[in-house]
Design a protein around this nucleic acid. Structure first.
Lengths: 203, 203
DNA sequence: GATCCGTGTGAATCCGGATTCACATTGACT
DNA sequence: AGTCAATGTGAATCCGGATTCACACGGATC
């Protein structure tokens, strides 16, 4: 039975190759470098082919962002849910976010603040909102359990998202300089966040 | 002595008019709406004239950003220096930043995170760094005086800048919805920042 | 084997701005 | 008056991409 219908020569749906190529380009050189021509070339297809699978460049990248951000969010959520206290959940979120951002700084920057199409920006905001919601959830839990002081969970969550993002990507924004000591940076940030939500000082 | 040399018919150096027009456009509709044609029209000159005073559009907007951000920074610095304790200085910075950002949300967003030319982005980063330095200074003071707990002032400053920015403009990012209760938002943010640097709870 | 559909091709085209430039105008200085 | 520098004009031009489209090609269906 040569060449059965289901066992085609690993064509790997072109659509997926396009998404993969776009993802790689963003990881390497950010959104700016991810022009249609580059994506097509990297996928081994012509530029026109891209439009057989996506109505526009923006649509392709919305999908790319959706996939990446979705996974990131899931990782954070799982990290948080594996913990038993709000404090350790907060630590876990920071740790998760930080370690991944520091490993792929370019990607982190692209995801968090690199200029992009309006459609892509909208997608970014959607996920940022989800990040806030996840953190707000943790904060609410901490306040209820008495681990954290009384506070407006949504306001704190917004501030925490900003703090985490800026502390990690702010300093190295687009310029390639990395943090001197990642572990220390993360620890410092965790301490900051704990204090911010009012975890009693360990001293 | 009709028409003395110094009393020209209020020409108001065209250069300044261009800067003013560009500033107004940014305040109203953000960077995206500030195209060369619009700036020129609003200044009452032709597009070509812009290039008599600036080598490029980016150069014009770098100057615009420099002026605005410089003033904002100065206001924050003065607000901080008028205080006698690090805690009140931190409060004053947050209050200053917040009240101004909430009054001109569109401008705040343009200044903090709207996509712009690389040159303009670079200017933005310069001022963000200065913001960090100002706050780091305050944090250092607080740590020394014992008002704040021991911490890495630079790391905390980066996180604080992010927290303040996100808490204020994050939620309303580009979409016109404003904060329900500005005063409450500011108070909540001040409390967050105090806790974050380890000011002993007022309770 | 005729037709159709899904897919691929890539040069030509379109598009939104920024930028240029040949041509005034005006005031200053000789 | 004559020259020059500075400034203004705005239509024409340029430019970096995204997007289109007329033209294949293979496999499936009838």
């Amino acid at each position: 039975m040569p060449d059965s219908p289901t066992a085609r020569a690993v064509p790997v749906h072109t659509r997926d190759r396009l998404v993969a190529a776009a993802t790689e380009l963003i990881m390497q050189d950010g959104y700016a470098a991810a022009c249609v021509a580059a994506v097509a070339e990297r996928s081994g297809v012509a530029t026109g082919t891209l439009y057989r699978h996506f109505p526009s460049k923006a649509a392709l990248f919305v999908e790319v962002f959706r996939r990446i951000c979705g996974r990131e969010l899931e990782v954070m959520r799982e990290a948080a849910e594996a913990q038993t206290t709000a404090t350790s959940a907060l630590d876990a979120i920071v740790e998760s976010f930080a370690s991944r951002a520091l490993q792929r700084p370019r990607l982190a920057w692209a995801l968090l603040s690199e200029p992009a199409d309006p459609l892509v920006d909208a997608e970014r905001l959607t996920y940022r909102r989800k990040d806030r919601e996840l953190i707000a959830e943790v904060v609410r839990g901490g306040v209820e359990s008495g681990e954290f002081v009384e506070q407006d969970a949504d306001a704190s969550a917004a501030a925490l998202v900003g703090a985490i993002g800026d502390a990690l990507i702010g300093p190295l924004s687009s310029t390639g300089q990395s943090h001197a000591d990642p572990a220390r940076t993360v620890a410092e940030l965790q301490a900051f966040c704990r204090r911010a939500v009012g975890v009693p000082s360990p001293a």
